[in-house]
């Protein structure tokens, strides 16, 4: 397998707070990579660095062998490297279908395409993906009126609509009704196997990520604490200590 994302010695501080220190990780093409760590360990900061949300203090970030650490958020998104937000971001005033249509991949759109209406195929694709995440019945509702968990599912569907090569998910199961989590895990797996999207997932819930990931990284206090297979991570004493120490 090829490494599709390669993060090398990346550091990021907020004022005096060192959120990431010399982090090096790799994401394999076609796989599911997990990123765990206690709250405040710097997981979201690392995602933000990868997608160009803020400039990094040092190090290098490569996507498909191209250096992207100086690129802007939009440019990186158009390369096919997409993220969802921990605090879920959707367009609350629009209905679900409109949210989906606005998420069509802009890397393929010319200005001419922008001045035309959405095609029948676009609508069908939106419906199909809303069906996939279980929001089809609610497709004409104002998305702001959906529950938090449904908004998370909508954001996931919007990301799929965008046809990313790699999708970075920031705590996809947080705030979701526990009875729905198994269904979501299944959909994440299918996004990986059926749609061929490489996944890089931040997950606080160990049970969830152990089930899915083929490679895992664990952060603590802004530093890379451990890496390995889910089994190796699960049995790593440093990881156990970090998690126990954090609670």
């Amino acid at each position: 397998m090829n490494k599709i994302i390669e993060v090398k010695d990346v550091s990021k501080s907020y004022g005096g707070v060192v959120a990431n220190k010399d982090i090096s990780i790799e994401v394999q093409e076609g796989g599911i990579t997990g990123l765990i760590g206690p709250n405040g360990s710097g997981k979201t900061t690392l995602f933000n660095s990868i997608v160009g949300y803020h400039p990094i203090d040092g190090g290098s970030i490569k996507f498909q062998n191209q250096e992207i650490s100086k690129l802007q958020v939009q440019d990186i998104a158009r390369l096919g490297l997409l993220r969802t937000f921990q605090q879920t971001r959707i367009y609350g005033a629009m209905d679900c279908v409109q949210n989906m249509l606005i998420s069509l991949p802009h890397r393929k759109m010319s200005l001419n395409d922008m001045f035309s209406r959405n095609t029948k195929a676009d609508y069908e694709k939106a419906d199909r993906l809303l069906e996939f995440v279980g929001l089809y019945e609610k497709r004409f509702l104002r998305s702001g009126s959906l529950s938090f968990g449904q908004q998370k599912l909508l954001e996931f569907a919007m990301a799929l609509m965008n046809e990313p090569t790699v999708l970075l998910l920031d705590e996809p199961t947080a705030g979701i009704n526990p009875t729905l989590i198994n269904g979501l895990i299944d959909r994440l797996r299918r996004a990986n196997t059926e749609f061929g999207i490489t996944l890089f997932i931040i997950e606080h819930n160990m049970r969830v990520i152990m089930n899915m990931a083929d490679k895992m990284y664990c952060l603590a206090h802004g530093e890379l604490l451990a890496e390995g297979t889910p089994d190796e991570i699960q049995n790593d004493q440093r990881v156990i200590d970090a998690y126990l120490g954090a609670h």
Binding site: V51, Y53, Q72, V73, Q74, A77, R78, L82, R83, F85, R89, I90, Y91, G92, A93, M94, I102, S103, P105, H106, R107, M158, N162
Partner: peptide, 14 residues
């Protein structure tokens, strides 16, 4: 409308 409702999200979607 997307820019109005959440410009950062719009950027993140490319």
């Amino acid at each position: 409308n997307a820019i109005r409702d959440d410009e950062e999200k719009a950027e993140a979607m490319g």
